[in-house]
Design a protein around this nucleic acid. Structure first.
Lengths: 272, 272
DNA sequence: ATAATAGTGTCTATCAGACATTATCTG
DNA sequence: CAGATAATGTCTGATAGACACTATTAT
């Protein structure tokens, strides 16, 4: 069983020794990372974008990311790029989807493995406000509009969303198609990456502990509830919300002001 | 805004015209497809594997799949490979995860975008039993063992599963690590692909209509329930199950024998 | 002092879990 | 006919949705 030979009479060892990768074309593969946080009072999601300094899409805003090296996984590449470009590390980072449509990058054949990163309020500010061309943007999404804006630098990128139904085997599912309605647009197919990631975040949010990556180590329940309401896009009932998270949190015994309401409230921490 | 020039003074058009992909190394990218079905009486999941005819892993069983071409998406590549290798088309096909660990292919740097395909009993048999080296295997998975076997051809591949906890940001999640316990093993990291895909199938199964891709157009409720029990790995109560699927199915008015029990039962169809 | 928010109590509709009963079918 | 399975009815406990009320807090 060990010394099987192929049609050329080679063992596996001999085959691998002689192996030369073919001459057919190969794609470049990048990671693109959607980094999400919230603003001070948890009223708005924030997304981190980088201004492109070279062609293509020069001057356009894009997701941070970069090419994957031969000796790393896509996860390590995403973590490395994130740290290099923003200083963020040890944060939540998860693979979302791989984008492969030919022509998605006008240069050449480039696939992108999309990741989603979540940062809490406390880590969020660090070293970014004055980074060369990185900036946090308000991200707002509802049933028919996606908007990415930053008043300070006068950027307002808007897409109109249209629901479209796709079939897959015997079942069908809905997805959004984005049409730009502002003169500013995101680079590449990064809108699609953002939409896909947001949908995944929403659908996992209620039944996982993802929320605790978007809030500090110590928090109040009103703040946590604001966060849930912000991501899910709907009001929740206080009592029901507290029952939902009761088993996940533990009171610290302290009190603190809620970030959202500026009122005193009991402080809690995540029971990991 | 249209005629931005980069540091070399080039417009985007000029840049793209002059663009030469760098000389740095690029990975090959394949798709691997986990095709799932069930046996005649819905007592066992079936997985489609192909026997490798060349190095590496010559003689080992592997997921069907192949390289992605420059002019197609990973989805089209998966659909194309599936049709070429098995004749299956117009079936459920969905991206699962992209595997990138260096060394996962002993030849060279190869990433794989994993897909999951679901086929119903009726389409399933078509043209495969005597395909060169493709075969359906019984797939069984529980908390500590994964087994892939086919009595007819005397194959019994087994892995011991160990739960391991990983951290991601502030939260932690569990995953399985597989150790082979049979002399036969799957090619490459295909065990990991199978485990990841099965977990995704299970977690989506209850709250989606995935099930209807694994059963014929017309079916009995007892059969549909067997399918749910098989995938979820637990007994369900008839009444509760019927309440769950009531809104998704419609009686045809006919009767037919259940595949699982061989008793007469009302026939239903999927209300897409 | 007042308006807003925190914390808690409770009522209800819904739904999953769990049996029980009767009808029907196969061998 | 006997044993198994189909179809349906109903009870229970958990939980999400929905308000109400009181205590606290910021301005």
């Amino acid at each position: 069983m060990k010394e099987l030979r192929d049609k050329n009479g080679l063992t596996e060892k001999e085959f691998l020794k002689a192996y030369k990768p073919g001459d057919y074309e190969r794609p470049s593969v990048t990671t693109d990372i959607m980094v999400l946080g919230t603003n001070e009072d948890i009223t708005c999601l924030k997304i981190l974008l980088i201004k492109r300094g070279g062609h293509p899409f020069i001057g356009h805003w894009a997701l941070p990311g970069g090419f994957i090296n031969k000796d790393e996984t896509s996860y390590s590449a995403a973590a490395r790029e994130l740290c290099e470009e923003t200083g963020l590390k040890d944060i939540y980072l998860d693979q979302v989807y791989t984008f492969t449509k030919p022509g998605r990058d006008p240069r050449t054949w480039i696939m992108s493995i999309a990741y989603m990163a979540l940062v809490s309020e406390l880590e969020r500010v660090e070293g970014l406000d004055d980074a060369d061309d990185a900036n946090w943007f308000d991200l707002m999404i509802d049933d028919d509009t996606l908007s990415i804006s930053n008043k300070d630098i006068g950027v307002d990128i808007r897409y109109r969303l249209e629901k479209k139904t796709f079939r897959n085997g015997k079942i069908s599912y809905e997805n959004y198609v984005a049409e730009p309605v502002s003169s500013d647009k995101l680079a590449f197919d990064h809108v699609e990456i953002i939409i896909e990631s947001i949908l995944k975040l929403k659908s996992n949010f209620e039944h996982s502990d993802l929320a605790f990556n978007l809030i500090g180590d110590k928090f109040t329940l009103p703040d946590l509830q604001r966060l849930y309401e912000l991501v899910l896009g709907k009001k929740l009932y206080k009592t029901n919300f507290r029952a939902l998270v009761a088993s996940k949190v533990r009171p610290t015994g302290q009190k603190r002001k809620s970030l959202s309401s500026r009122k005193m409230s009991l402080e809690y921490t995540y029971e990991g």
